[in-house]
Design a binder for these strands. Structure first.
Lengths: 216, 216
DNA sequence: TGTCAGAATTTTTGATCAAAAAATTTGGTT
DNA sequence: AACCAAATTTTTTGATCAAAAATTCTGACA
């Protein structure tokens, strides 16, 4: 019989943990990761860590080097262009799908998250900014209930995360603009095209921001 | 010093092997896979098989059930729509990028592959059809040298593969049309818009074909 | 016959170990 | 000092085992 008692397997938990490390820029691009290093950083055995690494590698969050190490891959102009192409076609669609399923309480929730974004920008807290920004977007995306689009989007965010962090660190949070107001008001008005446009703008702005640092 | 002697690790080989099983429909949708079953089907240890499974799960080729098993996921209308959205925006772009880098010998190669497609259709050999069709597309996609787009595309093909196989089995290969001629002649003429259109048509046709079986 | 609890079996999971591979250090030679 | 090869250390990889979890089997009871 299905007990439903046990929690998730450990490799899932480790996956989530490392995923957040990468997503919010705690691991620098180019930095190689040893399986042991991760294991005792997290305080876990080596077996589940390996499985988590395979999964993250498949998602593009890590890359296996020609030898047998893995590292957080560095961003390139080419990769950024490809990511932009997909993000611009997928995320506005996701946002629209999610928007259609939002009720009043969801609007409130989104505004609360947007408040956290502003607050983080004001405080110059990069980590919190990345986290709040992520939650804002994915709260809506999750509402869409579109497994496949969401998975792809998550993978792309994982690939951009580390560079975004580097850039924020370099230029500071003062350059960041909160683009979510436009999205929220479009949401409230039920203006779906407005929602799509707002998300497209937001993505474009984020991509440009990352591209800045690659031009040198 | 870097020896460069050893071949790839086994989990990579196993990954490729299982990937092909799924891609070419050797594993039916809904069918659960045991880690042991795979291990001694392939004749390998359980450790590398587990790693391969994690990777395939991350790519959507397998799905972890609520208990701790994995299975080839079943297709749904919703998933198919999402896949279609992404494929239509990514693959024509990939095809165009690849087309720009093709020379005469590549055209020949593509024609040869297309010949294999026709031959497989004629012989009613589903497995060979799926394989030749895959090679035709991905030969061009690989030329594009666009890591990220290719990874996404591969993941989507992995998710469609099993259903495609089921459908071919049900309706036979007689329903299949070779849509590649249009693409090849556009390629030869350097007509990039034509290439994109041809690929979009091909994808659309394939998606419709899979959708047929879901309507019941 | 149908159902349900408990036992037996199968399977997954994570730790550990040995072997293979890669990186690093060491020491000698020029 | 600069370079190279051998030795040492670190790391990955895959096998194996024990524990946990899930499934299947079994038999008692209504």
């Amino acid at each position: 019989m299905n007990q439903l008692v046990g929690k998730k397997p450990e490799h899932e938990a480790i996956y989530s943990e490392v995923k957040e490390l990468i997503l919010f820029g705690e691991v620098a691009p180019g930095q190689p990761l040893t399986i042991h290093g991760l294991a005792n950083l997290i305080g876990a055995g080596v077996t589940p860590v390996r499985e988590a690494i395979r999964r993250l590698t498949a998602e593009g969050a890590l890359a296996s080097l020609e030898n047998r190490r893995v590292a957080v891959p560095k961003m390139t102009v080419e990769k950024l262009q490809q990511i932009q192409l997909v993000r611009l076609s997928v995320e506005p669609a996701l946002a629209e799908m999610g928007a259609k399923k939002c009720d009043k309480s969801d609007f409130l929730e989104l505004e609360k998250l947007d408040g956290l974004v502003d607050q983080a920008i004001e405080n110059g807290d990069i980590r919190r900014y990345l986290e709040a920004n992520y939650r804002f977007h994915f709260m809506l995306y999750e509402k869409a209930d579109a497994q496949i689009l969401q998975r792809i989007t998550e993978s792309l965010w994982l690939q951009v995360g580390p560079s975004l962090r580097v850039n924020c660190g370099r230029f500071g949070t003062s350059n960041l603009v909160d683009q979510h107001q436009e999205a929220i008001s479009a949401l409230r008005n039920g203006d779906m095209d407005g929602v799509k446009r707002a998300f497209a703008d937001d993505i474009q702005q984020g991509m440009d921001f990352v591209q800045q640092a690659l031009g040198e």
